[in-house]
């Protein structure tokens, strides 16, 4: 079923964009999109965690939890995997690459509670497009890239917004959401 891969890429990245269509990962989208560099750092960190998470949770669910009849432990197991994964990545980065740690490290603790990560682990179980581990990982990878795309685009606009005058009640979150609204309309075209 390799011909499904392009469909998965398109769906995960654009037509079912994590941020703008499924609203997963809105907190970092609003919080870490003030400048392009940090937005890119956050996006990359999320992408890495999303891929590795699906790589671990998909087999755990299908080959351990389901045969044992422990489906009800799904939420606890998934969040535990994500929390430990984030810790481990943080430790490895700290020990091996100082520059990478400086670029991505500060965003890592925020990722545990990022809806997009637990979201992708759950979504690959439901999605009609995902039939095996490869599909799941591709979904995770391009979902993450779609996340990065949205957050980087947003940060570009917010940099401009700083110098613009905004009606008082719309300052802060509301104007950011209206910007996101226009982006969502564009993504809705896919």
């Amino acid at each position: 079923m390799l011909e499904m891969i392009p469909v998965i890429i398109f769906t995960a990245m654009l037509s079912q964009n994590f941020i703008l269509v499924q609203f997963l990962g809105i907190c970092p989208f609003l919080g870490v999109s003030k400048n392009t560099d940090s937005a890119f750092g956050m996006g990359m960190a999320v992408t890495v965690v999303m891929v590795i998470t699906t790589l671990i949770t998909y087999p755990i669910y299908n080959y351990i939890l389901v045969p044992l009849g422990f489906e009800y432990m799904e939420i606890i197991v998934f969040i535990f995997v994500i929390a430990s994964l984030v810790q481990i990545i943080e430790i490895i980065l700290k020990k091996t690459s100082k520059s990478l740690y400086e670029a991505m490290g500060i965003y890592l603790p925020l990722i545990t509670t990022n809806c997009a990560v637990l979201g992708v682990a759950e979504l690959v179980l439901t999605s009609n497009l995902v039939h095996n581990l490869l599909d799941a990982c591709v979904y995770g990878l391009f979902g993450g890239l779609g996340f990065t795309l949205a957050i980087v685009l947003m940060s570009g606009m917010r940099e401009k917004l700083d110098s613009a005058r905004v009606p008082k009640p719309l300052e802060g979150f509301p104007i950011t959401m209206i910007l996101a609204c226009f982006m969502a309309m564009a993504f809705g075209m896919f």
Binding site: V21, P169, F173, P174, M177, I178, C181, F182, M185, G188
Partner: peptide, 19 residues
Amino acid sequence: VQPAGALFTYAIFIAVYSL
């Protein structure tokens, strides 16, 4: 009921709330 409408609605609600 589309995603864009969600963001728009939320923006309006926060603005009204802050007023």
